[in-house]
Amino acid sequence: MFHPLRVRAIERITDDAVAVTFAVPAELRETFRHTPGQHLNVRYTVDGEEIRRSYSICAPAAEAPAEPVLRVGIRMVDGGAFSTYALKELAVGDEVQAMAPMGRFVLRPRPGLFAAVVGGSGITPVLSIAATLLSREPLARFCLIRSDRTAASTMFLDEVADLKDRYPDRFQLVTALSREEQSAGLPSGRLDRERLTGLLPALLPVADVDGWFLCGPFGLVRGAESALRALGVERTRIHQEIFHVDDGSAAPATARVASPSDSTLTATLHGRSGSWPVKDAESLLETVLRSRSDAPYACKGGVCGTCRAFLVSGEVRMDRNFALEPEETGAGFVLACQSHPLTPEVELDFDR
């Protein structure tokens, strides 16, 4: 369900990125109270076309009765309809439709040592995670390893510097620039698997980290995951969220198999069920959307996880999956935007 939110503030944070803050009406405060690491799904109509996008909340999570702060970071993406609009036309006072915060890339504050490897705009949810953790839990420590192209392109420089000043004994910051030398810190270059495998043990006791949070482009996240696994980190301690998947950079999650020509989808959504024929080559999300415009989705690329649904019966194939953990797929969850039927009858439940 979408709710109208007005833009309270827009701040230019780099040449190609802005931070947008939304005002939360009193009656929606509990609806929009987020867990650190969650994102907002927003929609807006541009030139008669509805556009949906997912943006992570960068502000610390506010506890009741304080008003939740909904601040998201938006970076310009080549050909990105909403990001272009946000940077060039969106203004204070404009109304945007948004769903309640969602997402499972989260950390509820608790004692321990936590670390993150982020690239570019991947800093956005991790900023909320680190700031909330350090302010609420005095026995927590956080190590942030971030990669950016140049200092000028680095998002939320001031906010990260503030964390370093406020928690000098509990917050460790390591920066790497891929296209620019810096006077202090790591030599320039990408943080790939080989480099991280050697770097991480030199920075912190890898085995003692209670949770790793990887966020950013596909290559960086997969490289960091591979490095951590090579260092003996259990997969259950690794949490990841991919922001960008370049064309050709990732293979489909499963091999393509022809779908039955007369499949029928039954889906439950918001307590109501319906059945519809699946048209040739369309995803199960597209099947539902033909009759139910309230079906949840944002990116339609297998990245955000908004269209997550439980497979009640039947079999499906997913073209690709960058949002669901192995435990989720093992428990029967699928991404409707990437799923196609393999059996004549398929049933999904979006309410689980």
Rank of each mutant, 00 (worst) to 15 (best):
I74H: 10
S261F: 10
A207D: 11
R71N: 01
L265I: 02
V7Y: 12
R352Q: 13
P138I: 05
I13K: 04
F243K: 02
E27A: 14
V72P: 07
P111V: 05
G330I: 05
R320V: 00
S263R: 02
T236S: 14
E50T: 12
R320C: 10
D78T: 10
A176P: 00
R75N: 08
L173N: 07
F105T: 02
K88R: 15
R146Q: 15
L199T: 03
F2S: 04
Y44T: 09
P68C: 07
T45V: 14
A100H: 02
S283F: 10
I57E: 08
R179L: 10
T236A: 14
R170W: 11
L285F: 06
S291Y: 09
V233F: 12
R104C: 00
R190A: 03
S135I: 04
R235H: 09
L196Y: 08
V69E: 15
L28I: 05
N321R: 10
L163F: 04
P109A: 12
L107Q: 11
R317Y: 06
A176L: 07
M102K: 10
L163A: 01
H244K: 13
A62Q: 15
R317D: 04
R235I: 03
G79T: 12
D280R: 15
D351P: 06
T329L: 12
S293N: 06
G93K: 09
A17S: 14
P4Y: 12
V72E: 08
M102N: 00
G332N: 04
E30H: 09
R149F: 02
P341F: 07
P109K: 06
V106F: 07
A258N: 08
S273N: 05
G48K: 06
G248I: 07
R33V: 00
F243S: 07
L231S: 02
E89F: 13
A258T: 12
W212A: 02
T329F: 05
I145L: 15
V69N: 06
A184S: 13
A59L: 06
A207E: 08
Y167K: 06
A161T: 03
S249Y: 06
V334E: 03
K164G: 02
R8E: 15
A323R: 11
R104S: 08
G37A: 08
L163C: 02
L127A: 03
T266Q: 10
L134P: 01
D162P: 00
